[in-house]
């Protein structure tokens, strides 16, 4: 696309050059879209961190200590897995785009779905036990 003030291309950093070897630079729109998707995963991870801490810090009057700690631990472990996995997902997509191969399936999506389901099931059990 034309522009009024194109800037010179910056050189690739050593870290990026080491991680993303070979291939050719993909369409910049795809690279930026990949970056935004990565950031969306990071925000999901941050929401899980906030949720895990909130459960432990603000629900002392609602939950038993055991259930509270379990839910908080599951949420925080999930947050770490999603945070770590989002980087590797970003990296794998960038590599696929550089080598023009099909994009990999997201492993972190089922992890998030299963983790969320586990936390919901724990809460359901707790609520049912409390009712009886």
């Amino acid at each position: 696309m034309p522009t009024s003030s194109p800037s010179p291309r910056p050189e690739r950093g050593k870290f990026a050059a080491k991680l993303l070897r070979g291939g050719t630079e993909p369409d910049p729109r795809f690279t930026l879209a990949n970056e935004r998707t990565f950031l969306a995963w990071i925000r999901t991870s941050l929401a899980l961190v906030a949720g895990g801490i909130a459960v432990e810090a603000f629900t002392t009057d609602i939950f038993d200590p055991a259930i509270r700690t379990t839910i908080a631990v599951v949420l925080l472990v999930l947050a770490m897995a999603i945070g770590c996995g989002s980087f590797f997902r970003w990296l794998n997509i960038e590599r696929s785009m550089r080598h023009k191969t099909p994009l990999p399936l997201p492993l972190i999506a089922p992890i998030l779905a299963i983790g969320g389901g586990v936390v919901a099931a724990l809460l359901l059990v707790f609520v049912l036990l409390r009712l009886t």
């Binding site: 870290f15 991680l19 630079e25 990949n34 770490m80």
Partner: peptide, 25 residues
């Protein structure tokens, strides 16, 4: 990003991604 769009080529920012993901972990 603007210069990348203008030049039809952008370098992926691996260091920033690793930094942010590392901070979250």
């Amino acid at each position: 990003a603007v210069s990348g769009i203008a030049n039809e080529r952008i370098h992926a920012d691996a260091a920033a991604a690793a930094w942010v993901a590392g901070s979250v972990v």
